[in-house]
């Protein structure tokens, strides 16, 4: 019997070793350890043994059974691992293939510039004012100290709709309308928007372009405030190292009036072809609000003062991104637009 048992063990272990999948292993288990298996049969035959032999044989059967079970389980673990390995191999992919594209668009570069400027001024407590693109001559010119027949009207060639209405030539009429509406109250606004001039479209001219106007009116608003504000603007748009300088100029709606240069962001001020070797680039016009403009809108120019500035969004975008032709902003070539997708340093 003992020999019979040993033989069974040998047979079982050999079959376990030979099994190549879980099903075969299960068959082995059922065949040898199952209720109808030979080991169980042997245990049933134990009654025929002598009382001295019985415990000895019992221990032996248990050892064999344990041994077969252990081998069986070890083999199961190996086969399971193999199965997972096979699955992993089957499921492996070429990770260098391109990903599934996420479709996105982005802002127009002019909107990008405008929003950047808006955000700067919003953070300084400004509001954003908007006004109509078709304006009355009064708001576009007269309320800004440009009466009919004023020579300075020649500075801006105008698209007229009628004698009294026109396409605004700048965003300054929004100033005039805001002042009228605020009835003598302090103001802090910027006004972005489309403006129009009678120009033939070419690389540097566009009959339609974008301007951003700024206006602050309050007690004791000084030219130094204008300078400090524009310095913050220049630094935001062109980098912390930028400096600005003011040059005297003339606009009928401001006195004093200035042109504002920013130190060249390309060469840092040493001179290059972007700044035409001067180290400085003209970026905007500004000044202290002319008392006539204040008075016409019902502000007491003796008590309140203010500053105003106007920036061309195209000019800023062209300088900032090195765009060489203003028409790019209006042809909407996707190869152009899509370049303004990413963040910038």
């Amino acid at each position: 019997m003992e020999q019979q048992l040993k033989q069974l063990e040998q047979e079982a272990l050999a079959k376990i070793e030979a099994a190549s999948n879980l099903k075969e292993l299960n068959d082995v288990r059922v065949a040898y350890l199952g209720k109808k298996g030979p080991i169980t049969d042997l245990l049933k035959g134990m009654g025929k043994l002598s009382p001295e032999e019985r415990p000895k044989m019992g221990a032996l059967v248990n050892t064999v059974r344990e041994n077969v079970t252990n081998q069986l389980e070890a083999r199961i673990t190996i086969l399971e691992e193999q199965a997972i390995q096979e699955q992993l191999e089957k499921e492996s992919i070429d990770v260098t293939l391109p990903g599934r594209k996420i479709r996105t668009g982005n802002r127009h570069p002019l909107t990008r510039v405008i929003e950047e400027i808006e955000d700067l001024f919003l953070s300084m407590g400004y509001e954003i004012a908007e006004g109509p693109e078709v304006e009355k001559d009064y708001y576009n010119f007269e309320a800004l100290n440009l009466p009919k027949g004023h020579p300075a009207r020649d500075m801006q060639d105008t698209f007229y709709i009628t004698e009294e209405t026109l396409l605004r030539t700048h965003t300054s009429p929004v100033q005039a309308r805001t002042m009228e509406a605020k009835k003598g109250e302090p103001i802090r606004i910027i006004c972005p928007g489309k403006v129009f001039r009678r120009d033939n479209d070419d690389a540097t001219h566009s009959h339609q372009f974008m301007q951003i106007e700024g206006l602050v009116i309050g007690e004791n608003i000084r030219m130094s405030d204008l300078k400090g504000t524009l310095d913050a603007l220049a630094k935001r748009m062109f980098g912390e190292e930028r400096e600005i300088r003011l040059r005297p100029s003339f606009f009928p709606f401001t006195e004093p009036s200035v042109e504002v240069d920013v130190s060249c962001h390309k060469c840092g001020g040493t001179g290059c072809n972007v700044c035409k070797q001067t180290g400085w680039i003209e970026i905007l016009g500004a000044g202290m609000v002319h008392p006539n403009v204040l008075e016409m809108a019902g502000y007491d120019s003796k008590k309140l003062s203010g500053f105003a500035f106007g920036i061309g969004a195209e000019r800023i975008a062209m300088l900032k991104y090195g765009v060489d032709d203003i028409r790019h902003f209006y042809t909407n070539d996707i190869r152009f637009l899509s370049q303004f997708h990413r963040t910038e340093e």
Binding site: G105, N106, R107, H108, T111, L167, F196, H207, Q208, Y330
Partner: peptide
Amino acid sequence: LYQAVTYSL
């Protein structure tokens, strides 16, 4: 979508 800007006229 990409944002476009076209002429008002």
